[in-house]
Design a protein around this nucleic acid. Structure first.
Lengths: 160, 160
DNA sequence: CGCAATCTTGACTTAAAAGTAAGGTATTCC
DNA sequence: GGAATACCTTACTTTTAAGTCAAGATTGCG
C-alpha cells in the first residue's frame, strides 16, 4: 500500500498553485523549478489535473496555470482519485495470476478488506482540503490533528 | 494509493495456509495451484513470509508450509508490513525529483498527510486477523462490519 | 504580420516492479 | 545409502509505471 510518484508529485504541483494569491498564476517552468522536477514531467501532471478540471491553463505569452476552484473547496480525496484513476475498479481484474480471471471470483475473503481499505483512505482524505496543506509542516500537522481527519503523530522525522 | 501484487498474492497464499486444520500443511505446488499463480512466484512469496517468521516450512518428501502461529494471532498489519517492507520509511527518499533530496526537506505540508494515511491504514489492518478472513465473502464482510475495523460497505460487486 | 512565450499531445526511452528459470540443498522413505 | 520430494537462492526476462522529447497549437506584443 503506497503512494505513487504520480500522486505525490501531482499533489505537490497543485499545492504550489494553491499557495498563490488571487489572479496570480504559475508557468510550467516555474512549477517545475519550485518542485525540483523536470519541466516535461510537470507538464504531464498539470495536463492530467487540467483534463480533470482541477486546474485551468491559459496559453500564450502571459499564460500559466492556476486552480480552477478556491483551495478551500478542493478535497484531497478528489485529487488522489484523479491522479490515480480508479485503482480499485481494476484491482480484481489485475491480480488474476496466470489465469484469465481470479480463482476467487465471486467469493473472496480479501475483497472486503481491499474495498474497506480504500474507503478508509478516501474517508480520511475527504476531510482535508488543499488550503489546509499550505504553510509550514508543523502548522499543517496541528491543523490535521484538530480536524481529526488523521490520527495524531509524534513530532519526528524530517523533510517532506 | 494501491495494493501491490506482492501484497495481494502474498496475503492470499497465507490465507490458504490459514484455512488448514492443525497438523496439515500445503506444498508449494498446492498453494500455487489453488491460487492460480506459478509455482516460482508462490515460492518467492512464501520465502518472504518464511523469512519474516509468519510461516514455517519443512523440507523433504512430506514437507510443506504451514502458519507459524494460529491464524487468530496474526494481524493483517503485520502481514502487509512484511510484504511491503517499509514503504513509509523510504517515501521521502524516493520522491526527490531530479534532485538529490526533496526540495521540501524539513518543511513539507504533504508529509503529515502521508504519515497519517499510513497510520490510518495500519490502524484498520491491526484490527483484523487472518482467521477473520477465512470463509465466504459475505461472512467475512459481516465479521469486519461487526468489529468496526472497516466502514460498512454496500453489498455489490463481484469477486476478488 | 511575425516572433516569442507558453501550453498540448503523442511517441519514445528509461527505470522499477513483477514474474520466471534453473541449479543447489535439505529431508524423508524405502 | 540412495533416490525422490520439496524447499532455497540467485540471476535473468518480462511487464508496467515513470519520465523525457520534440513537434504542434495558441496567445500576446510590437
Amino acid at each position: 500500500m503506497k503512494v505513487s510518484a504520480q500522486e505525490e508529485y501531482g499533489l505537490r504541483c497543485l499545492l504550489q498553485l494553491a499557495s498563490l494569491a488571487d489572479e496570480e498564476s504559475l508557468t510550467l517552468a516555474q512549477v517545475a523549478e519550485r518542485e525540483g522536477i523536470s519541466q516535461a514531467n510537470a507538464g504531464k501532471l498539470l495536463w492530467i489535473l487540467n483534463k480533470a478540471g482541477l486546474v485551468t491553463s491559459t496559453r500564450g505569452t502571459k499564460g500559466g496555470y492556476r486552480l480552477a476552484r478556491p483551495a478551500t473547496q478542493v478535497r484531497l480525496s478528489e485529487v488522489i482519485k484523479v491522479l490515480d484513476e480508479d485503482v480499485l475498479a481494476s484491482h480484481c481484474k489485475s491480480y488474476t495470476g496466470v489465469l484469465d480471471s481470479c480463482v476467487h471470483n465471486g467469493n473472496c475473503g480479501i475483497r472486503p478488506v481491499i474495498v474497506g481499505l480504500h474507503e478508509v483512505v478516501e474517508q480520511a482524505l475527504s476531510n482535508i482540503t488543499l488550503a489546509q496543506l499550505v504553510g509550514t509542516e508543523s502548522k499543517v500537522k496541528t491543523t490535521l490533528y484538530n480536524i481529526h481527519a488523521l490520527p495524531r503523530t509524534t513530532t519526528q522525522g524530517r523533510r517532506a
